[in-house]
Design a protein around this nucleic acid. Structure first.
Length: 586
RNA sequence: GUGCCCGUAGCUCAAUCGGAUAGAGCACCAGCCUUCUAAGCUGGGGGUUACAGGUUCGAUUCCUGUCGGGCACGCCA
C-alpha cells in the first residue's frame, strides 16, 4: 500500500461483507444492498452494519445468529482491530489505530484533492440555477438558490462529475416588456413628459437609473409621440373597465407601436444592463456560470416551433377554444396545458419544453434544475413533456429550494418584488460579507424553510458559524508559521504517537470527510459540508486548548503538526467547496 | 376546496434516506488567558420529536386521522 493510494474504509468493509454473505449459501437469496454507518458511540466501534437484522425476517433466524455467521465468514482485513456482535444484532467494526494514523499520509499527499472521489465517473451533469428574470436586482431569495447551486456544483465536480453550470435567461417574456415600458416611462419623465406610472410596473430606483443613462446618452432621441400612448382608441376609452394587467398590456402594445424599431433598442438596453448587473453581482458572490442560455434564442432558432411539432407528430396535442393544448394528463399532470395561445403566441411552458429538449440534445447524462419551492406544481408537466418526447425523464432531477425569510432587527423584512421594497443580495453581501452569507445559506437543508437572521450573520462573534470554522483554519496557520518548517516534510511522518482519545477521534473525523462529500453529492445536500466543517472545527478547537503542538520532543511535535496540517487541509478543501475563503489570520 | 412540503430543547436547526442513550449552535448559569490567536475551551440545566392510533426486533423517519404553518393551483413568466 502506498501512502497516496489509501482505501475508502467504508467501501472496503462493504466489500468484505459482500464476500462474507456470498460465502454463506443460506444467505444468497436474501441479501440486498449492504449499508455501513458510522457509529455515534465509541463503545460501538467505528462502523456498524445492520445487515443481520435486515436478513432476520426473510431467513426466519435470529439476527444475532446471522450476525455471528457473517462475522465468522468475514475475510481478514489489515485495518480491523476487532469485530463485535452487539445489541439486537449489530456488527460493530473497530478500526486499528495504525489505520487511522496512516490516513494522515494520504491527506498530506492528496492536498487539495483530498476528499474527491470518482462517484461521477466523468459523467456530464448540468446544473441550472438562479435563472432569475433579468428585470431587477437579485434579492436574498435568489441568493439561496445561488449559494446552493454553486456549492452543489462544486461538490459534484469534486465527486467526479463533469459539471456545467447554467443560467436560463428569461429574456423573451412579458416581464421584459414591462421593464422596457417602465424604463421608457421614466425616460419620458426626464423629458418632462409625465404619464401616470402604473402601480404594477417596476417601481424600483434602478429603473430610473437606466432611464437616466438613456437620457444622458441620447437626450430626446426616444421620445417620439408619447401622447399616442394614451390614445383615444376604443380600447383606451374602455380603460376604466380593464383590469390593471390588461391596461399594462395595452400600454406595452402602444409603446411598441409608437417606438417601432426603437423599441428593440430600449428592450435590449435594459436587458443587457440587468444581465450585466446580475452577472457582476453573482461573480462577487463567488458564483459563476459556464453558459447563459437565452430563452429568446429558442424562438429565433425555431426550436420552440420544432418542439411543438414533435409533440404534434407524436399525437400529444389537441385544439380547443382556438388554443393548442398538450395532453399532460396522460403523464400524471392534474390538467392539460396550453402550449400555443389563441393569438398564436407560444406560452412560457412551450419554450420550456424546447429548452429541456435542447438540454437533452446537448447530451448531458444528468440534468439538475434548482427551482424555488413555488415551482413544485410545475414539475409534472415538464417531466410529462419529456416522457411525451420519448426522453428519459429520470435524467432530469429537480431540487426544490424553499424560500428564505429574512429577519432584520428581530423582525421579518419585506420582500415584495414589484414594489421595489426588498433586500437585495448586494445589500446582504455588503452588510454581512460574502463568506458569512454563503455559509449561512447552506447551513440548512435546502428543502427546509430558512430563516435568515441578518443580525446573526453580521455579528463578528462566535454566534456566526463561519468565523468559527475560519478561525480554526487561521489558528493552524499561525502555529505552522511559528514552527517555521516545511509542511511537505510532514507527509510521511511517524504518526503512531497520536493515540490519545482526542487525537484518534480527530483522525476518524478526517477519515469521514470523503464519505461526507460523497453523501453530499448523492443527496444534493451542501449543508452536510457546512455541518461537517463546524464539527471538525469544534474538535480542533477543543484539541488546541488541551494540547500543545510545539513541544520540545521532535517526533511528537511533528506527528501533532502533521495532524493539524491535515485538519487545515480538510478545512480548506471544505470551505473551497462552499466558496468561502480560508484565511491565514483573523 | 384540492395537491405538495413541513411541525424536533426557550430560539435557529441536525439526526448518514427504519437503527443502539434524539444531537449542535444561540440564549442562560459556573469556571479557564505570564506558554502555539479567548472570534477559543471546560462543566451545567434544559425533550412524551404537534396530537392520537397503526405497521415491526426497533419509528423523529413509513401508513391513517386530527390540529397548526408554508407553497401551488392562469391561454402569467
Amino acid at each position: 500500500m502506498t501512502s497516496t493510494d489509501f482505501p475508502n474504509f467504508k467501501t472496503h468493509f462493504i466489500g468484505l461483507f459482500q464476500q462474507a454473505s456470498n460465502a454463506i449459501r443460506s444467505l444468497e437469496a436474501a441479501v440486498v444492498d449492504i449499508e455501513l454507518t458510522r457509529t455515534k458511540q465509541a463503545s460501538h466501534g467505528d462502523y456498524s452494519c445492520n445487515l443481520a437484522m435486515q436478513l432476520a425476517k426473510p431467513l426466519h433466524k435470529s439476527p444475532r445468529e446471522i450476525a455471528q455467521l457473517l462475522v465468522n465468514a468475514l475475510p481478514p482485513s489489515p485495518y480491523l482491530e476487532k469485530v463485535e456482535v452487539a445489541g439486537a444484532g449489530f456488527i460493530n467494526l473497530f478500526l486499528k489505530n495504525s489505520a487511522k494514523q496512516q490516513f494522515l499520509h494520504y491527506i498530506l499527499h492528496s492536498k487539495n484533492t483530498f476528499g474527491n472521489c470518482t462517484l461521477g465517473q466523468g459523467k456530464r451533469i448540468q446544473v441550472e440555477f438562479v435563472s432569475a428574470n433579468p428585470t431587477g436586482p437579485l434579492h436574498v431569495g435568489h441568493g439561496r438558490g445561488a449559494a446552493i447551486g454553486a456549492s452543489l456544483s462544486n461538490i459534484l465536480a469534486a465527486a467526479g462529475f463533469d459539471v456545467s453550470r447554467e443560467f436560463y435567461v428569461n429574456d423573451a417574456g412579458r416581464q421584459m416588456d414591462i421593464l422596457t415600458l417602465s424604463t421608457w416611462l421614466r425616460y419620458l419623465e426626464l423629458n418632462h413628459i409625465h404619464i401616470p406610472f402604473p402601480q404594477n410596473a417596476y417601481q424600483g430606483e434602478y429603473v430610473k437609473t437606466m432611464a437616466q443613462q438613456i437620457f444622458q446618452a441620447h437626450a430626446q432621441r426616444y421620445v417620439h409621440q408619447p401622447e399616442l400612448l394614451l390614445d383615444s382608441s376604443p380600447e383606451a376609452v374602455l380603460a376604466a373597465e380593464m383590469n390593471i394587467d390588461e391596461q399594462l398590456d395595452k400600454l406595452i402594445a402602444n409603446t411598441k407601436k409608437i417606438l417601432g424599431q426603437d423599441y428593440a433598442y430600449i428592450h435590449n438596453f435594459v436587458l443587457t444592463e440587468q444581465l450585466g448587473d446580475c452577472r457582476n453581482d453573482l461573480m462577487e458572490f463567488g458564483v459563476e456560470f459556464d453558459t447563459w442560455f437565452s430563452e429568446q434564442s429558442l424562438f429565433d432558432n425555431g426550436l420552440v416551433a420544432h418542439a411543438i411539432e414533435l409533440l404534434e407528430k407524436k399525437h400529444h396535442l389537441y385544439q380547443q377554444d382556438g388554443a393548442t393544448w398538450f395532453r399532460s394528463t396522460d403523464f400524471g399532470d392534474e390538467k392539460d396545458r396550453v402550449v400555443q395561445r389563441e393569438n398564436g403566441q407560444f406560452t412560457y411552458f412551450a419554450s420550456d419544453i424546447a429548452y429541456h429538449l435542447n438540454k437533452f440534445e446537448r447530451g448531458f447524462d444528468q440534468v439538475i434544475n434548482i427551482w424555488g419551492a413555488d415551482h413544485h406544481g410545475y414539475i409534472p408537466r415538464v417531466k410529462g413533456a419529456l416522457h411525451a418526447l420519448d426522453l428519459d425523464a429520470e435524467k432530469l432531477q429537480i431540487a426544490l429550494v424553499q424560500f428564505a425569510v429574512l429577519y432584520r432587527n428581530g423582525k421579518k423584512a419585506p420582500m415584495s418584488t414589484r414594489s421595489g421594497e426588498f433586500v437585495t443580495l448586494r445589500e446582504l453581501r455588503q452588510e454581512v460579507g460574502k463568506d458569512a452569507a454563503r455559509f449561512f445559506y447552506v447551513m440548512r437543508k435546502s428543502d427546509q424553510h430558512l430563516d435568515f437572521d441578518m443580525d446573526l450573520a453580521k455579528s463578528q462573534s462566535n454566534e456566526n458559524p463561519v468565523y468559527y470554522v475560519q478561525y480554526a483554519h487561521a489558528r493552524v496557520c499561525s502555529v505552522l508559521t511559528q514552527w517555521d518548517g516545511n509542511v511537505d516534510d510532514l507527509q510521511d511522518v511517524n504518526a503512531d504517537i497520536l493515540s490519545s482519545p482526542a487525537e484518534l477521534a480527530l483522525l476518524q473525523k478526517l477519515i469521514d470527510f470523503p464519505d461526507t462529500l460523497e453523501m453530499a453529492a448523492k443527496e444534493f445536500s451542501p449543508h452536510l459540508i457546512a455541518f461537517y466543517l463546524r464539527e471538525l472545527a469544534s474538535e480542533f478547537h477543543s484539541y488546541y486548548n488541551s494540547t500543545r503542538f510545539l513541544v520540545p520532543e521532535i517526533s511528537l511535535q511533528h506527528a501533532r503538526l502533521a495532524l493539524i496540517a491535515s485538519i487545515r487541509q480538510t478545512l480548506s478543501n471544505g470551505l473551497l467547496l462552499l466558496d468561502v475563503s480560508a484565511p491565514d489570520k483573523m
